[in-house]
Design a protein around this nucleic acid. Structure first.
Lengths: 331, 331
DNA sequence: GCAAGATCGTGAATCGTTTCAAGCTGCGCT
DNA sequence: AGCGCAGCTTGAAACGATTCACGATCTTGC
């Protein structure tokens, strides 16, 4: 069976296609009686608007792309959820894509979104060149960078440097003098900034370079955290305070420490980052730096929607949100 | 600036639009020289195909919808990833939607996908009526049910009853005689089946109704697992073996038990379900029932693609995959 | 009785692609 | 020379919606 089109509805209701379209888009322009008749036909025939055709005509769809580096890190999916909720509230829908840590896949995602004619993109970029952003802009897409301050585009980011400092200072005020920092790949800007923030805070507090050793892991997963723990346990003397670049790392690390018989927080204290749901229910409930997830997501779509709304000249805004320390038991 | 269309390319290359389209879709039909000239123009102008228009013409896009109950449960996202990978290999793309546990949102997802003209839907349904499936079929969409055996549609499911039995039997052979089952909402079929499978295995092994107490939690999260643990610790005598309906529950539960000073597995043994990544790195590495995640995802898209391929009469297939016990330390 | 609005409805043009019947060339063959 | 054929290319007709200039009908006030 072929799909029901606006034309079928028009015939069934005995009106013109234009009128059906008006019922759909500007109901106030059509007389009560006709409107109801058309509505009835729509219901009876089970008509669903072909968004594809609508987009083609209108030039752009009511859809925003969301490109995240991973679906398995709850932090990102929560940000995305907040973003999506905000979109829905404005009649937009979200198209989710994952770059899965590969810059090539990231490009494929963007190609896909362009082809799908989305009106904007929220992206937490792996490695997005200035040119590509410009290209997207050139094609009329709104672009909002998540967690990356870009000069030529809107962006919303958490202040990772401050967050790292928050974590480190917490350890320092608790009299820890030998620190370890377990971090993800330093090639990623937010990761690097957390690290810098923490390291700088340590130095400012009078620690020397030797007092803080950093472990760079290729992934930011619990498994990587576990691996970091065994590396860390090889140190002598042991550090007493550890800052992990995200909660997954921290969870894997704490688990391994506990398994090895090390008491957390008495022998080693651990601070995580993100405050994902799992942090609160970890064996040792995790002290962590909370990112303003829903604010991040929400303002990202707000910026995107603002940009698509105002067609032409639009001032790119850089929103920076502050993280917050959540003290639980691990430090 | 307005988007570059196939027509612009045609003019730039000095050919007709038909030829450009041929270069794109049946390159073998066009002479080498022309093809190269067109390709050059495409590159030079930065043309991207408007998938929207293409879909409109072709009737259906090269896109499959994926509807999952949650983005925060790694099990589902991994299944989705496998499904997406299989699609990409066939030139299809995935559209991800989340029902977020709400049947209303589930319907919205399907509406969205219909509007977007996807050619099929993989759905792990919350509460999908027969009629809705029929409706989708009627509109020419392929439908593949994940984790739900439906007679009027293709489906691929893991054998949850067998999985539950696997878990319970593992505990039983280890001489546990007082069991607890921590489960998600029994209104969800897969959850119910895991429970049944486990309970039945216990009874078959000669346990009585009193020997196994079940805790039904509204959510299947670590937090819920934690809550279950405190309920469970109120029991007297304590059960010695616990089967959790998924790994997140198990992780939350184990963490809380450990925190309460209960030794796992010596005092209480715990078996999870899913074998998500976190299971292996938990404080007590989790013994769990592994679902064939990538097979699930892959065969789901295979079924969907087969259905869209063969236009008309197509025999719905029900694929059932077997789970597998992974023994670690928690039981 | 009539001009001027106001209110509704119409239908053709349009968006960017694919598809396909038909046209054009040049070549080999008789 | 004429024919048939293969290989390329063309251009117009769809796909299903939105938009908009224009008609048709109805009010209203004088």
């Amino acid at each position: 069976m072929t799909r029901i089109s606006i034309r079928d509805v028009a015939i069934h209701a005995g009106v013109s296609v234009g009128t059906v379209s008006n019922v759909l888009n500007r109901p106030n322009l059509v007389a009560e009686a006709t409107r109801e008749r058309v509505q009835a036909s729509i219901g009876e025939l089970g008509f669903v608007r072909n968004e594809t055709a609508r987009q083609l005509r209108q030039g752009r769809g009511h859809v925003l792309g969301v490109v995240l580096p991973s679906m398995t890190n709850p932090h990102f999916t929560e940000v995305g959820r907040a973003a999506e909720a905000a979109m829905n509230a404005d009649g937009f829908d979200a198209l989710w894509c994952t770059s899965d840590g590969s810059r090539e896949k990231e490009q494929r995602c963007l190609d896909f979104l362009e082809e799908q004619n989305v009106s904007g993109v929220l992206i937490s970029p792996l490695d997005l060149g200035e040119e590509r952003v410009a290209e997207l802009h050139g094609r009329g897409l709104a672009v909002v960078l998540l967690d990356r301050i870009g000069v030529r585009a809107c962006s919303v980011a958490a202040d990772h440097r401050a967050g790292g400092a928050l974590a480190a200072r917490h350890l320092l005020t608790r009299r820890h003098r030998r620190l370890a920092i377990v971090t993800g790949p330093l090639s990623a800007r937010p990761v690097r900034e957390r690290h810098h923030g923490a390291a700088r805070a340590a130095l400012d507090a009078g620690l020397s370079r030797h007092d803080v050793t950093t472990f760079e892991q290729a992934e930011m997963t619990a498994a990587a955290g576990q691996a970091a723990a065994v590396r860390l346990l090889g140190l002598d003397p042991l550090p007493t305070g550890v800052f992990c670049g995200n909660d997954l790392l921290a969870i894997g690390l704490v688990n391994e420490l506990v398994r090895a018989g090390v008491k957390v927080p008495t022998e080693i204290s651990v601070v995580g980052y993100d405050d994902i749901d799992l942090a609160a229910t970890a064996v040792v409930p995790l002290t962590t730096v909370r990112q303003p997830r829903v604010d991040l997501g929400r303002t990202a779509t707000e910026l995107a929607l603002a940009e698509t709304g105002d067609p032409e000249h639009h001032d790119h805004r850089q929103v920076v949100l502050s993280p917050e320390l959540v003290v639980r038991e691990s430090a």
